Computed example of a mutant assay.
Amino acid sequence: MKTPEQSAPAKNFNEETITLDTPIIRGETSITSITLRKPTSGELRGVSLVDLASMDVLSLRKVLPRITTPTLTDIEIGRMDPADLLQCGVAVGSFLLKKSDREAALIA
């Protein structure tokens, strides 16, 4: 008999899906969720890691178009609901942690 820990799929620490409180409207399409993937070092070019870890809006506006699916534009990010932008910032900030530290944060 499997325990709940054994039957649940393993958490992918390299991506996070966010359900938006306020959908992003793109033409006739309504984007209700986005997936963020862990950025590579090259995708962090031109951004201070300290600013990104502090969820600086300008830093997020530079990085999010590089790591979102569907790919969001700078203008779309600028029009995001602040609660949704905060969720994106939390996800990006967690990507900057070591995997073991992220696992420990989930258990705590």
Rank of each mutant, 00 (worst) to 15 (best):
Q6F: 08
E16Q: 11
D21A: 14
T22M: 12
P23W: 01
P23R: 01
R26T: 08
E28S: 15
T29E: 15
S30F: 05
I31W: 04
I31L: 06
I34V: 15
I34R: 01
R37C: 01
K38A: 10
K38M: 09
P39C: 05
T40I: 11
E43V: 13
L44Y: 11
L44H: 07
V47S: 00
L52A: 07
A53R: 05
A53F: 10
M55L: 13
S59G: 03
L60T: 03
L60C: 01
K62D: 09
V63F: 11
V63K: 11
P65E: 01
I67L: 13
T68I: 06
T69R: 10
P70I: 06
P70C: 13
T71A: 15
L72K: 01
T73G: 10
R79H: 15
M80E: 07
D81Y: 08
D81N: 15
P82V: 10
P82T: 07
D84N: 10
L85P: 05
L85F: 08
L86V: 10
Q87R: 14
G89Y: 03
G89Q: 02
V90L: 13
A91R: 00
V92W: 05
G93M: 02
K98Q: 15
E103C: 08
A104Q: 11
L106E: 14
I107S: 14
A108D: 10
A108S: 11
